[in-house]
Design a binder for these strands. Structure first.
Lengths: 123, 123
DNA sequence: CTACAAGTTGGAGTGCGCTCGAAGTCAAGC
DNA sequence: GCTTGACTTCGAGCGCACTCCAACTTGTAG
């Protein structure tokens, strides 16, 4: 797949894909003889995975760290535990975030209900 | 209350509080004869309210919009519906966000479980 | 063969939400 | 009266995650 296909498939821009490679979030992508990037299905799966991490607000720095561990651990299980811990720490953060969001939503619902009451009074 | 008290009470920095006033997120705060800001309990309640909107990732621009409506509607109900709608639109966004987070968390849990399996295989 | 779209690089620019620094003012304690 | 420290204003700077630009090369279509 060429860069535009991956952009279409992931919703990321071609700019962003090149930038991801530059910062080490995407390991060196293969090229055709003209120097153009050729992405594999594996690259696409990885992009979907980090897309979810991003959706969960994992900082790019941390995703890069995960990517590095993955590279180093390619032919060994040396980094398995480290990678799992990285994910677990983030999972906990997301859960706390969701708890706070839930609490805020309750307040917001109350506020909206209050507004409805005000509007009814003046109806 | 002076600025440092409000900073301590809200967790915002004095810098941020001045900036909030500058951008219109906080209507002009009273001053003592030395020109120093004197915050009221109302100011504090407002800061807690917008703190929750921030926690829910409402853009500052939109909070400013809400603040403007509140100012204009001080002695009338002209802006009640507009303010409610603003909050409702945001509520919907937060709900969608939480749905996506929930879906991502499921994938993340699966991934973590996979890592545990790998580690057990090598134990 | 030419035109043109789509790719390449490196580096600069953007928008957001603060965050900080410089220079000056004010008031309470000694 | 003098020092100290919290305040004031204004504007610049920062970290993040892109986003865009300029200049150039490549490969396909007519």
């Amino acid at each position: 797949m060429r860069i535009r296909d991956v952009a279409a498939a992931t919703g990321l821009s071609a700019h962003t894909l090149r930038w991801y490679e530059k910062i080490g979030l995407l390991r060196s992508v293969e090229r055709d003889r003209g120097g153009r990037r050729l992405f594999t299905q594996d690259d696409l799966r990885w992009l979907e995975f980090i897309g979810r991490l991003r959706e969960m607000d994992m900082p790019v720095r941390e995703m890069v760290r995960y990517a590095e561990l993955r590279e180093r651990g390619e032919q060994g299980e040396a980094t398995l535990a480290a990678r799992r811990e990285l994910l677990e720490v983030h999972r906990q953060r997301v859960r706390e975030r969701m708890d706070r969001l839930t609490a805020c939503l309750t307040h917001l619902d109350d506020k909206i209900a209050w507004y409805r009451g005000q509007e009814d009074d003046h109806a």
